[in-house]
Design a protein around this nucleic acid. Sequence first.
DNA 1: AATGAATGAGGCTTCATTCAT
DNA 2: AATGAATGAAGCCTCATTCAT
Lengths: 219, 219, 219, 219
Amino acid sequence: MTDSPSPTALRGAAPKRQRGHDRVAAILQASTALFLDQGYEAVTMTGIAAASQTAIGSLYRFFPSKEAVADALLRQYTESLGAGLARVHAHAGEAGGSMGAAASAHSLADALVDFMASLHAERGVALALVDARGLDDSRRALRAAMLDNLQTLLGTLLPGAADARLQTMALALLHVLKGVAQMPDGSAPAPALLDEYRSMLRAYLNTSVEQSLETTKCA
Amino acid sequence: MTDSPSPTALRGAAPKRQRGHDRVAAILQASTALFLDQGYEAVTMTGIAAASQTAIGSLYRFFPSKEAVADALLRQYTESLGAGLARVHAHAGEAGGSMGAAASAHSLADALVDFMASLHAERGVALALVDARGLDDSRRALRAAMLDNLQTLLGTLLPGAADARLQTMALALLHVLKGVAQMPDGSAPAPALLDEYRSMLRAYLNTSVEQSLETTKCA
Amino acid sequence: MTDSPSPTALRGAAPKRQRGHDRVAAILQASTALFLDQGYEAVTMTGIAAASQTAIGSLYRFFPSKEAVADALLRQYTESLGAGLARVHAHAGEAGGSMGAAASAHSLADALVDFMASLHAERGVALALVDARGLDDSRRALRAAMLDNLQTLLGTLLPGAADARLQTMALALLHVLKGVAQMPDGSAPAPALLDEYRSMLRAYLNTSVEQSLETTKCA
Amino acid sequence: MTDSPSPTALRGAAPKRQRGHDRVAAILQASTALFLDQGYEAVTMTGIAAASQTAIGSLYRFFPSKEAVADALLRQYTESLGAGLARVHAHAGEAGGSMGAAASAHSLADALVDFMASLHAERGVALALVDARGLDDSRRALRAAMLDNLQTLLGTLLPGAADARLQTMALALLHVLKGVAQMPDGSAPAPALLDEYRSMLRAYLNTSVEQSLETTKCA
DNA sequence: AATGAATGAGGCTTCATTCAT
DNA sequence: AATGAATGAAGCCTCATTCAT
């Protein structure tokens, strides 16, 4: 009763002027960098404000909490991830038509790795955020969305597989892709390591397809 | 204060040491649990003290800083990891003698996954600690040790591979194994997911071995 | 900007004034409600702006500070209080003419309680504002005005009393009346409690009148 | 789950050493003074720390929040209030035996006023705290305790009265007594005003007793 | 040696008020 | 004139670490 949900009704408002939009953009850009090289916990609102040349009060005008900043980043990222996976999907689809399943697995693996590598840094942060302890609902939702995307993709590759299997595969796949987006030293995408991941996923998807075919044949 | 006439000259030293050991053990146990479900940053020294029934002053007598606690945990973990990998190595070695390289890759993958799964929880924490941004030297060293172990292991499997290649593989492998030790929901080891990882590593190592053989053959 | 050719020279001024009035009224109404259930300190300018559908910048155009809002409320309240007491005075006066002093005290007590009860809520806020620590001059003045009104009223009832006495009585009376206007739970005016206050003031004023008569008689 | 109720388990702990007790005493004394002349809202924890020569961290060791400080003060106060009312009760009791009911009312009024005046300042604060918006449970309980005490006292004076009546009387009485403890200018106890309150309560209690007797007689 | 107390920098957040479009 | 954005001092609170008994 005394705790009205929005006594101010302004905090966290979307910007309505050009200047506000610029601010928000600056903040998101700065926080991406900070989250990237310090990790969620170590980043401070004061730090974000400083890095984005924003008065602390202005920061809070648009983002009522550190969580809100992380959420915004995550949302932004999830969108590009979704779009990217859709593109991967499309490619895989057309390729799948003219190729055998094995070739398809091969190209899917490459597409995934390339895609993840392409979003290194700018948006790879999100993967770190998604793992932070205490996922709130909005974060949990985003994670689920990513998994769904992957699951769909895998479903195309392995038409005969059970949903449960696809779901588990998506989990494993997500973990590996996370490795792709987060190069161990936090910086450059190390071509050799990318190749390694590519090779790993090719092998993995290939094997899965083969097993799937056998199963189908037998039945 | 003056109530024990100290009949034997031994009293005073031994009990103290024993108590010290117990304290340290209690502290490490408590912090493992705490780090596990709150993450490094969220854990407080006061929290560790409380959870291990230790006065904050005493905690600092044994561990001069929060980092020291994490380091101790990490050291402890690295030891079991080292020992475990040695065991895996031994197995792989003897198996490798009597089997083909493919079978060897197969069993190595299984051994690795089983081993990582076996240290879930109790020591899986360490993996989280090792990733904390701002690795200090002692942490960096531990990470390097793990990578070395894996690299050696891979060297046995792929005798002809270049060191650089092995190092890169170790990185990818470590990432995947980390996934095994940290089940996504932070709790149970989910058999289906373990199988998935197992399958992934089998495929990966297998393929690597095959490629390696071909390369060797051609040369 | 240039879309009204302004056919009549009147346009532009009158509507603006009207809008300004509405704004001010809305602001005052909203702040009354807010001060009422949150207290002076807890109310925020942003909150007032939101509740009155006013942009924060506009709010500051009409009221240059939070204090200014409180002052306006207080002034508004003081006016109705003054008017009310005047009415009570008038009643008491005409009644006093045709009745004995005792009956007069009786009816004055009732009139006061009824009057205070009648301004519960809408304007009871003011009493809270008046008590806020750190009364600035304008607030102190309002308080003095209220006391003056009461003192005058009491002077009519107790023609022989010294000014100092009347002043002290006004203080005590004001405190009790404050209780009438601020029901303990902050909500409804609880008839039983009103009766109690009525009874208390009757007894008090009655006794005062009796004593006063005796004193006068003796002298 | 993640929100363990007491992660630190230390905050708000009772002092266990002499020094701690001194600290707590100093804090309570300083905050009494501050609450007294600034009001609950205006007092800051930083202010309390400064006034009591306490580092902010130490303040929080013993009092986990501003509310906790207020509660402690209130508890302390309620105790003296209870004790004081008990003494008043005892007096009234013995006096009541040898005197008529009227005399009894008279002396009760005096005793109450004197008692409240006697705790001006040092503990009168509490009355202000008790009125602060958003009474939490502990505060509500203390308020109820005060009312109970008064109700009991009134019950002795008016043996025939219904509980509901006594309760209402207690409310009115409490409000008036609050006025006694909080001299308007926040400082000295102004003898003339005390007399006025005394006179008011005498008249009130007297009248109540008389009415009560009549009622009894008639019935 | 063991333990409670002390310390203070630093994090998050709010809000009155001013600025600029 | 109207409105959203900007500002920064100040409040609350936490926590790693050090002190003193």
